[in-house]
């Protein structure tokens, strides 16, 4: 296809793509480079077709003027990368249980003296594997679980993945790292899929949120631990900074932040203090405001 072809209504010109890219960036903080062009085009074409518009111009106008029918949400759902699985980057859950949670309990006065539950946030949680993995590991491996209340929250910008997290029905690929004993104990096979038990599902509260949206993020407060893995890599400089600052606001002073294993705060923001755990680097909101 050459750039001048304008097939059957939907194909995007270069300037369409640029206009769209700017708009989408302003709304979500997600930046697409030219190299993502093909991927973005395909997704947009799908959205235009499904919403019944004749072409990019009318669809884009509707999207910008008054988005009554949720076109933006649909688009976000199409354009985000949702890949995840149970017990991904598992060594961090190891850190959570061995080092981070004991420290959290100590910092908050010790078991029996906590003023409120221990709060853990998985943001983005995508289809739920991450917060449910945390729930499973805590139940199976944390010796304090019977003495402490733990709240686990999952949040994502994409309403489709949240609906799937709520459903909690997974394919083989998703559960490939779950030990057989746990599969037996917490999942029910349904055809080729695995249905997570209600007990675990109910232990996780799901929310829709844009991590770059400061006003909405004000609702998240006093978390002891946040997992923010494999999303900041998609953001540009300014959005990742804003996301970092919003996560900082959602943590208690002294609270811990885990990033994906290929991610580092060192290219984003200096507001956190890095700390070395036996399993790798974790970030802490400094106690007493500043570093």
């Amino acid at each position: 296809m050459t750039s001048s072809t304008k097939t059957a209504g939907a194909a995007l010109t270069v300037s369409d793509f640029e206009k769209f890219r700017d708009y989408f960036y302003k709304r979500t903080g997600i930046q697409f480079t030219e190299s993502k062009r093909y991927f973005v085009d395909k997704r947009i074409e799908t959205c235009i077709r499904q919403a019944g518009y004749s072409g990019f111009a009318s669809w884009f106008a509707a999207l910008r003027l008054n988005d009554r029918s949720g076109l933006l949400q649909e688009l976000i759902n199409q354009l985000t990368v949702n890949e995840t699985y149970f017990l991904r980057e598992d060594y961090q859950f190891e850190s959570l249980i061995r080092t981070v949670l004991p420290d959290v309990l100590a910092a908050r006065g010790g078991v029996g003296r906590l003023n409120g539950p221990v709060k853990i946030l998985s943001l983005p949680c995508s289809t739920g594997e991450e917060p449910y993995s945390i729930a499973l590991r805590l139940l199976e491996e944390w010796d304090q679980i019977d003495h402490v209340d733990v709240e686990i929250h999952g949040a994502d910008i994409d309403s489709d993945v949240l609906a799937r997290a709520e459903l909690a029905s997974y394919n083989e690929r998703s559960v490939h790292r779950v030990p057989p004993a746990w599969r037996k104990k917490y999942f029910t096979p349904v055809g080729v899929r695995y249905q997570l038990d209600e007990g675990i599902r109910d232990a996780v509260t799901l929310h829709q949120i844009n991590v770059c949206d400061t006003v909405a993020m004000r609702g998240f407060r006093d978390f002891d631990v946040i997992f923010c893995r494999n999303v900041l890599i998609y953001f540009d400089e300014l959005s990742s900074r804003r996301a970092a600052e919003n996560l900082y606001g959602a943590l208690r002073p002294g609270g811990y932040l885990f990033l994906g294993h290929s991610e580092s705060m060192s290219r984003i923001s200096p507001i956190f203090t890095p700390a070395r755990l036996p399993e790798g680097i974790v970030y802490q909101r400094p106690i007493g405001g500043s570093r």
């Binding site: 729930a135 805590l138 402490v148 209340d149 709240e151 686990i152 509260t205 609702g219």
Partner: peptide
């Protein structure tokens, strides 16, 4: 004790100052 659930939106919609 154990895993607990909290369903109310975490005070998200309190009006922006």
């Amino acid at each position: 004790m154990g895993l607990v659930r909290r369903d109310q939106q975490p005070a998200a919609e309190k009006a922006a100052p």
